[in-house]
Design a protein around this nucleic acid. Structure first.
Lengths: 215, 215
DNA sequence: GACCGCCTCCCTCCCGGGAGGGAGGCCGCC
DNA sequence: GGCGGCCTCCCTCCCGGGAGGGAGGCGGTC
């Protein structure tokens, strides 16, 4: 029997997961938490085998909770991170935080069940797109914070990502099907918003802030 | 029925894999290749669903073959990379090359069969240790090699560190009590040794290789 | 409708950075 | 001693990048 803890701020999602999982004979949902802080307490008291953890939650988010749980327990549970999009930038950070695998919310029930069993057995399941984005050295999502603080627009963030991969303005223009002038404009606003003097400093900031992460 | 192509330079390994796979009703080994070049040809003629590809092979290695196969075919097969050690540095490069998953040679037969079925279905299996090494922000092997192979002198390494902190040549000169000309010389040799076009790319390489680490 | 933010593209001006040379001093090794 | 590697500094040439403007279109909001 595999004991499972559900952590998601949406009741609906928890209910859905519970229905899917408990339809199986060998899976048992032993608890539910609506945020990361509650999750930590329940892990201590319930000692589940597997935790299904939503990434985006108010208060304590899934990544922080994952780290806390892994730090806390002597025999921590397996943690599967729930996300909405395959190319979610959280993928990278979550694995870094110690998550054992990834699960798309829109995955078919059989896949969800399957992933839970795999996790309990010590394996890990990643969807191809998630793996690719990992392998491609994709930007991580504390970008969200950096972007939020700096107030970068989508386009600017996109440009910064390419700058942080060593591309010249001309190359970025080609990559995004833009004029070099446009790229220059974006780069300039990025520099201004980041308080960087030149693109080199912008790259440093991008790495230091976690906007992009080393492979 | 899932058609499989085995690529490994060791006959023994191929035989073992074939035995394991063909014991299943739904798996069929349609061919074997002893090196990457032969593999490419067989993929064309046999059109397998899944390729089990050894990484280390004489002549054309597994990564090169993987890239070639993916470039070549219009509907390329799923490629599972075979490796001996969980912490094999090839993990990163292989995924980057487009491999769909990883398989340890010492995996239990059931796991191998399982991974093949997953791959055929479009999922990907990674062993926890492999994922961890990926997610741990492991230094990009090629970048690390670039720096290691580069054979930077002490002075050059020192300069690169400052470049990777966003300093201009003039600032570096002031920091190290040097002439700007001297700094330029050092920067130029660093760029040459790293194969970087400009200081921005050098910074990227420095981070990707782990030469400098984000705070 | 007026306004604002974003994206797009244009211009000029200027400087720093990088290429591609050369050269002298120092140290350690053969 | 001679040689090679490293560090230092010099020169010129040139381009890309960044500053500092302006402007039009588009989609929102008030």
């Amino acid at each position: 029997m595999i004991d499972i803890l559900l952590v998601d701020d949406e009741e609906l999602v928890r209910t859905g997961l519970r229905a899917v999982l408990e339809a199986q004979g060998d899976l048992r949902v032993v608890g539910e938490a609506a945020d990361g802080a509650a999750a930590l307490g329940l892990v201590r008291s319930l000692r589940p085998d597997v935790v299904l953890m939503d990434v985006r939650m108010p208060e304590v988010d899934g990544l922080t909770a994952t780290r806390a749980i892994l730090r806390d327990a002597d025999a921590p549970p397996r943690i599967l991170v729930l996300t909405t999009f395959e190319n979610d930038d959280y993928v990278y950070e979550a694995l870094r935080a110690g998550a054992d695998g990834f699960l798309l919310k829109r995955a078919r029930p059989a896949e969800i069940v399957h992933a839970v069993r795999l996790a309990a057995a010590g394996d890990s399941l990643l969807f191809p797109a998630a793996i690719r984005s990992l392998a491609a050295g994709r930007a991580n999502r504390s970008a969200a914070e950096a972007v939020a603080r700096a107030g970068l627009t989508d386009r600017e963030a996109e440009v910064l990502r390419l700058v942080a991969r060593g591309l010249s303005n001309a190359e970025i223009a080609a990559e995004l099907f833009l004029g070099v002038q446009t790229v220059k404009t974006h780069v300039s606003s990025v520099l201004a918003k980041l308080g960087a003097r030149d693109r080199t400093q912008a790259v440093v900031t991008a790495y230091e802030s976690g906007f992009v992460a080393p492979a």
